[in-house]
Amino acid sequence: MIDMSVSVRFRVWVEVGGRHVIGPGGYEILKAVDEVGSISGAARKLSMSYRFIWNYIDRMEKTLGIKLVDAWKGGRGRGGAKLTPEGQALLQYYEEILKEMNEIANKWTQQLTERLKNMGEEGQ
């Protein structure tokens, strides 16, 4: 018998004016900055370069025309970063989109599993 484990999968990203703003990678970056409180700490946590994360955030901000991260310099151990209220909101919106999409994917996974099982029984 064929393995009938069904999975409905998806990948979500948000575009503004046809330009990528946030997807799984951007979400992870903002989430890490929020949790760790610095861009360098987020870079270490995600095994990415500081420059990559800084450029990614900069590109998001320029596309939206909104400041997402407040960063400050302060020498060794004194610098930091935190999400602006807009950055927090973007993170929350993305999480809400994922939650709904996961619910839909789970619904379709269950429905397709049942339908394929029934098709298999009919064919025997």
Rank of each mutant, 00 (worst) to 15 (best):
N55C: 01
I22V: 15
L98P: 09
I66E: 09
E61T: 02
G18A: 04
E61M: 00
G41R: 04
G17C: 05
A89C: 03
V8N: 05
G41K: 03
L83D: 07
L68T: 07
A32W: 00
R44F: 09
G26Q: 07
K73I: 07
T109P: 06
S47H: 13
T63Y: 04
E35F: 05
G80Y: 00
G77E: 12
E103D: 11
V69N: 05
R9F: 01
A81I: 13
K67R: 15
A32P: 02
G75L: 05
K62H: 11
S40M: 05
V21D: 09
E15F: 04
E103C: 00
R59A: 14
T84A: 09
A71R: 14
Q88L: 15
A81Y: 04
E95Y: 01
R78D: 10
Y27C: 05
L83W: 07
L46F: 07
A105W: 01
N102C: 06
P24V: 07
V21T: 03
V8L: 06
K67M: 11
V16G: 15
V21K: 02
R76Q: 13
G41T: 02
A81G: 02
A105C: 04
E100L: 13
E100H: 13
I97T: 06
I97V: 15
R78A: 14
I66W: 06
Q92L: 14
V69W: 06
K82S: 11
G75D: 10
K45N: 12
D70H: 11
I53A: 00
D70M: 12
I57M: 00
G80P: 09
G87A: 08
R44S: 13
E15G: 06
G87W: 05
W54N: 15
E95G: 05
L46R: 13
L90T: 08
P24Q: 12
L68V: 04
G74N: 04
V69Q: 05
T84Y: 08
N102S: 14
I22A: 09
M60V: 01
N106F: 09
H20C: 01
V16E: 12
T63Q: 00
N55I: 07
W13M: 10
R44V: 10
T63S: 06
E100T: 10
L83H: 05
W13R: 14
G77C: 08
E35P: 03
A43K: 00
G74V: 09
L30P: 03
I97W: 00
W13Y: 13
A42W: 02
E96H: 08
V21P: 04
W72F: 12
Y50R: 15
E95Q: 15
P24I: 08
V69D: 06
L30M: 08
G79H: 15
E86Q: 15
S47Y: 10
G74I: 07
W54L: 14
R59V: 07
R19A: 08
I104D: 07
S38I: 03
S38V: 05
N102K: 14
K67F: 03
M101W: 01
W108C: 07
G74F: 04
G87P: 09
L83F: 04
W72H: 12
I53H: 04
V12L: 15
A42K: 05
H20D: 12
V14L: 15
H20L: 11
G26E: 07
G18S: 10
V8C: 09
R51D: 14
G23C: 03
I53E: 02
R59C: 01
N106M: 12
I29N: 04
K99C: 05
